[in-house]
Simulated assay, not measured.
Amino acid sequence: MTKQQSILVGSGIAAILALFIFGQTVPPKKPNVAMAAAANNQQAPATVNFTDLLAKAKQKLTPEQNERITRLENSVTRGDVKEQQLHIYHQLARFWRDSAKVLEPYIFYNAEAAKLENSEKNLTFAAHQFLDNLMVEGDPAMQTWLATNAKVLFEQALKLNPANDSSIIGLGACYILGNISNNPMQGILPIKQIADKNPKNLYAQLILGLGGKKSGQYDKAIERFTVIVTEKPNDLEGLLNLAECYDGKGDKANAVKWYTEVKKRIPNEEAQKELTNRIKQLTQ
């Protein structure tokens, strides 16, 4: 099996498990798309903009829902008072979350409200909504859209509290995972400084591990994920990433070992089936 094939198989399992592990509000896209692109050094992804995402989301609405949304959107453009705009953004976010159940407009409008509120708590919450979805998103263009929005929010939050390690790590993750910079060290160095200072900062270890995994530096990634599972033996995210890194580098024995550890801890039947199939493939 080639490295590219191994990446595709392992990331297919990640797609199945992502909903269970990350608790997404909508099913995630398959990570293997992004991993294959990275493995084959494809060109920069096409641009995604919110106007197109919103238009696509509206196609799923009833005429009555579309009419309601249009009224709210028009109210935003007419509202010249901050409190009025803030109220409408909250209404739009709630609609897309509760009534339409579409992720992208929900997190976008929630972010617009957070920018107006300019509260560190709300800014970082909104930023992590983009970042959490970035970590399981497979389409490179969507990765860039998510990372770009998260970056703006983290930067605004860091103006309020420059010493917040979590926001520094989050901002670095945007550069490492979001295709928004040709210089990944721009994101890696600040996170590495935090990890060097405090090796038990598992968030820093996770992002550095994901960066190594994305770039195919599996040995470095394995070091990071090993720190995580040593500190938290039941951490499904760390266990799965560790298994996939061993899978990616062609170490079948360790891949089977860690896929088996994931299988022991996850009750989802579909995920169990995918893990069983992958373990059989590796042991044949």
Score class of each variant (00 low, 15 high):
1 M>T: 13
1 M>D: 14
2 T>P: 09
6 S>V: 02
9 V>P: 02
10 G>C: 01
14 A>K: 12
14 A>N: 09
15 A>N: 12
19 L>D: 08
19 L>I: 03
21 I>Q: 02
22 F>H: 13
24 Q>V: 06
24 Q>E: 11
26 V>P: 02
27 P>C: 03
28 P>K: 00
28 P>H: 01
29 K>N: 13
32 N>F: 09
35 M>F: 14
35 M>C: 04
35 M>Q: 10
36 A>K: 07
37 A>Q: 12
39 A>I: 04
41 N>R: 12
42 Q>K: 08
42 Q>M: 10
43 Q>N: 12
44 A>N: 10
46 A>I: 07
49 N>G: 04
49 N>T: 10
50 F>Q: 12
51 T>H: 13
52 D>K: 11
52 D>Y: 08
53 L>N: 03
56 K>H: 05
56 K>M: 09
59 Q>E: 15
62 T>D: 08
65 Q>L: 04
68 R>P: 00
69 I>A: 06
71 R>N: 04
71 R>C: 00
73 E>Y: 05
74 N>F: 04
77 T>C: 02
78 R>L: 10
79 G>K: 03
81 V>G: 07
83 E>F: 05
83 E>K: 10
86 L>F: 14
87 H>L: 13
87 H>Y: 09
88 I>A: 09
91 Q>R: 11
91 Q>N: 11
96 W>E: 10
109 Y>Q: 05
110 N>I: 04
110 N>K: 14
114 A>E: 09
115 K>T: 13
115 K>P: 02
115 K>D: 13
118 N>A: 15
118 N>C: 06
118 N>Q: 13
119 S>I: 06
119 S>K: 11
120 E>W: 08
122 N>Y: 14
122 N>V: 02
122 N>R: 15
126 A>T: 01
128 H>P: 03
128 H>F: 15
130 F>A: 00
130 F>R: 00
132 D>T: 11
133 N>E: 15
136 V>S: 08
138 G>R: 00
147 A>K: 01
148 T>C: 03
149 N>G: 11
156 Q>P: 03
156 Q>S: 12
157 A>D: 09
157 A>T: 04
159 K>Q: 15
162 P>M: 12
163 A>C: 03
163 A>N: 13
163 A>V: 05
164 N>V: 01
167 S>Q: 08
170 G>K: 02
173 A>N: 14
178 G>Y: 00
181 S>D: 11
182 N>Y: 11
184 P>H: 00
184 P>Q: 03
184 P>M: 00
188 I>E: 12
188 I>Y: 07
188 I>P: 00
189 L>W: 03
190 P>I: 06
190 P>G: 14
192 K>F: 02
193 Q>V: 05
195 A>Y: 06
199 P>A: 07
201 N>E: 12
204 A>L: 01
204 A>W: 00
204 A>Q: 04
205 Q>D: 03
206 L>T: 05
213 K>F: 15
215 S>F: 06
217 Q>F: 08
217 Q>S: 10
219 D>G: 13
219 D>I: 03
220 K>E: 15
224 R>M: 15
226 T>V: 04
228 I>Q: 01
234 N>P: 01
241 N>E: 15
241 N>M: 12
241 N>A: 05
244 E>F: 12
245 C>Q: 05
245 C>V: 01
250 G>R: 11
252 K>W: 04
261 E>T: 02
262 V>H: 14
268 N>A: 10
279 I>M: 11
283 T>C: 04
284 Q>A: 13
